[in-house]
Amino acid sequence: MRLELHPQNPNPRNLKTIIECLRDGGVVIYPTDTVYGMGCDIFKPEAVERIARIKGIDPKKSHFSFICYDLSHLTDYTKSVDTPLFRMLKKALPGPYTFILPASRQVPKMIKTKRDSVGIRVPDNLICRTLVKELGNPVMSTSLPVDEYVEEYTDPEIIHDKFGKLVDIVVDGGPGGVQMSTVIDCTGAEPVVVREGAGDWDAIS
């Protein structure tokens, strides 16, 4: 199923259908401020396992990240954030960055890494943040089952044609991007850029 949501004014009926799907343990493809991603409610282990199967990866070894609504929501899922790091997060978010942070107890074990850390995003995209807000839980965020994002994967209709049978709903929020988020590891003494992407590291460091 492909459901359209307007980027600035999401249709309440379609939004309700998507939220019910996530609450029932469904898997959806949705837009972010970078590429289209695939996700589920992080507290639905069967849905997390299903995404791992779709991508052909071991859920215990995968590095899943998830989307929070805003900065205060993000701090629920991380251990204490010191002032310099908080300043950086405030400058960067919402935006095209993924921050790897020490995970709090609220993060499901399945989503934590062995180092007890987790990747968290707050995209500058109203659709995915509204999904998180209405659901009341973070939504898992992982890339589509492709080797790389190319021009055709910016088109939700093509995404639906190729991957619609693998998931329950493709959320059509208009054209997506081809560049992933910039990943910054904040678990050590100094933040380290793990993957350069759409976010400008110099703008926030």
Results as ranks from 00 to 15, higher is better:
T154S: 11
V81L: 04
G95A: 02
G136V: 01
K133N: 14
T75P: 04
L144A: 02
H73E: 06
V122M: 00
K114D: 12
G119V: 08
M88W: 06
N125C: 11
K112P: 05
S143C: 08
Y69W: 12
L85E: 01
E151D: 10
C68G: 04
D168F: 06
L131Y: 00
K162V: 15
V167R: 04
C128D: 07
H160A: 15
I100W: 06
S65I: 04
V139N: 01
L166Q: 13
F64P: 01
R121A: 07
Y69F: 10
M88T: 01
F64Q: 01
V132T: 11
G136M: 00
S72G: 11
S62I: 10
E157V: 12
G173H: 00
K133M: 12
A103T: 13
I169N: 00
E151K: 14
R121Y: 06
V139C: 05
G164W: 03
I111C: 01
K165S: 15
I111Q: 03
G95Y: 04
M140D: 03
R115E: 11
E152Y: 11
T154L: 04
T98W: 02
V146S: 13
V150Q: 14
L126F: 13
D76Q: 13
V167W: 08
E151F: 07
L74R: 08
G56Q: 12
D76A: 09
D70L: 07
E49Y: 15
V171Q: 06
V171G: 12
K55Y: 02
G56Y: 09
D124P: 10
T83L: 14
F86A: 14
K165R: 15
Q106I: 10
D172Y: 05
P138S: 05
D172S: 07
S141A: 10
R87E: 13
C128Y: 10
I127A: 02
P102N: 08
A103L: 09
A47D: 03
L74V: 05
E49L: 15
I169Q: 07
T83R: 15
M140V: 11
V81W: 13
D70C: 05
P123E: 05
P175Y: 14
L135H: 01
G174N: 03
V146F: 13
Y153I: 06
V167L: 02
D76N: 15
